[in-house]
Amino acid sequence: MHFISLISYLIVETGPDLQIRIKYTTVLIILLISVSLKGQDPHFSQFYANALYLAPSFAGAIEENRISINYRNQWPAVSGVFNTYSFSYDRYMPNFRSGIGILATYDVAGSGDLSTTNIGLLYSYDIQLNREWHIRPGINFKFTYLGLNYGKLIWNSMITARGTTPSVYPPPFEGVADVDFAFSALAYNDRIWGGVNFDHLFKPRQSFYGDWDTHVPVKVNVFGGIQISRRGRLLNRYSEVISVAANIKYQDRFWQSDLGLYYYRDPVIFGLWYRGIPFVTSQAGDAIIGLIGIKTQNLHIGYSYDFTISNLIASTGGSHEISLVYEFITSTLGSRRRMFHAVPCPEF
């Protein structure tokens, strides 16, 4: 009620400071709405093409080196921009049974460029339980920054017959910097994998006005799958694989569930996902995702499209996603190659 009274007062009050109050209050409303929406993390449909974003346990879960670049354009038909960029590098260190990595993400939304930047350092350790099963705990310690380009916002007082004029009032806030932490665990053998990731354990602040009660909620991510069929020659990588996988997320009372199928026949991979499984999601029947990719020994290139099937079907324009993953070896592994046990999940 106090908030409604404040808005009513600003609307009916007159005077030279009215425009200033309206501007600042409008910014506050926009930020409150935006922060509420941004409480949900950016989402990638190609989970395993951005494995370090999915869980830090995947750091170093390759033969030696990996570079991953990901781009997602969500809802292009909606006014403004909703783009997410991601870059990561990770390396496996067989002498220490460990993996290290760095992950940087940049998410921008709206015409005011409300952005979230995260830069994290990752570590994982491979524990061999027996001849078949491995467990990889992982951690991600990261720096996070929330920003807004106030100069790109246009107010009615700035519009003139000659175009727009810049605002003479400085922004009433600054960007928000904080630190965050994530922990994950991954279990796998040569056919089955499954894991859980707990993100935003430090609950970083997300308020431009110093409100300590406004923070990023903890996110829990449960994922896994199985290779149900595969063919290949002995001692060579498989030339044909069919996998089933699932991914379930929970954050701030919202659930999202994905169930999908991958078919790989060297060198092409196809994928089909359904997002919004009834009773395991907050938005049943959300989207159908189609994937096509090329997988070679070192290079993986993928494209996916989210086709919206909810009541937003005519408004969003779906979502486009592109991934590029390059794996390479810089040293002679020799006998250490036998120590590496690959996670059997798809590359996209």
Rank of each mutant, 00 (worst) to 15 (best):
His2Ala: 14
Phe3Ser: 10
Ile4Phe: 15
Ile4Asn: 15
Ser8Lys: 07
Leu10Gly: 13
Leu10Phe: 14
Ile11Tyr: 12
Val12Asn: 07
Thr14Glu: 11
Gly15Trp: 02
Asp17Gly: 06
Leu32Met: 15
Leu32Asn: 15
Val35Asn: 13
Val35Lys: 15
Pro42Phe: 14
Phe44Asn: 00
Ala51Leu: 10
Ala55Thr: 02
Ser57Met: 00
Ala59His: 05
Ala61Gln: 15
Asn65Met: 07
Ser68Glu: 08
Ile69His: 04
Ile69Asn: 10
Arg72Trp: 01
Pro76Leu: 05
Pro76Arg: 08
Ala77Gly: 13
Ser79Asn: 13
Phe82Leu: 13
Asp90Trp: 02
Asp90Pro: 11
Asn95Val: 10
Asn95Pro: 11
Arg97Thr: 10
Arg97Phe: 09
Ser98Gly: 06
Ile100Phe: 13
Leu103Thr: 02
Asp107Tyr: 12
Ser111Glu: 12
Gly112Glu: 05
Gly112Met: 10
Asp113Phe: 15
Ser115Cys: 05
Thr116Leu: 14
Asn118Arg: 15
Leu122Ser: 02
Asn130Ile: 09
His134Phe: 10
Gly138Glu: 03
Ile139Gln: 01
Phe143Leu: 10
Tyr145Cys: 04
Gly151Tyr: 04
Met158Ala: 04
Ala161Tyr: 09
Ala161Met: 10
Tyr169Ser: 00
Pro170Leu: 04
Gly175Thr: 03
Val176Tyr: 11
Ala177Ile: 07
Val179Asn: 11
Ser184Thr: 00
Ser184Asn: 02
Ala185Asn: 07
Asn189Lys: 03
Asn197Thr: 03
Leu201Trp: 06
Pro204Leu: 07
Arg205Tyr: 04
Thr214Asp: 07
Thr214Lys: 13
Val216Ser: 13
Phe223Ser: 05
Ile226Cys: 11
Ile226Asn: 13
Arg230Trp: 11
Ser239Pro: 04
Ser243Gln: 10
Ser243Lys: 11
Val244Glu: 06
Lys249Asn: 12
Gly260Met: 09
Leu261Gln: 02
Asp266Tyr: 11
Ile269His: 00
Gly271Asn: 04
Arg275Lys: 09
Ile277Asp: 03
Pro278Val: 08
Thr281Trp: 03
Ile289Tyr: 05
Ile292Ala: 07
Gln297Cys: 03
Leu299Phe: 03
His300Ser: 08
His300Thr: 04
Ser304Glu: 09
Phe307Cys: 04
Asn311Phe: 07
Leu312Val: 01
Ala314Lys: 15
Gly318Val: 07
Glu321Arg: 02
Glu321Tyr: 01
Thr332Val: 09
Leu333Gly: 09
Arg338Trp: 06
Ala342Asp: 08
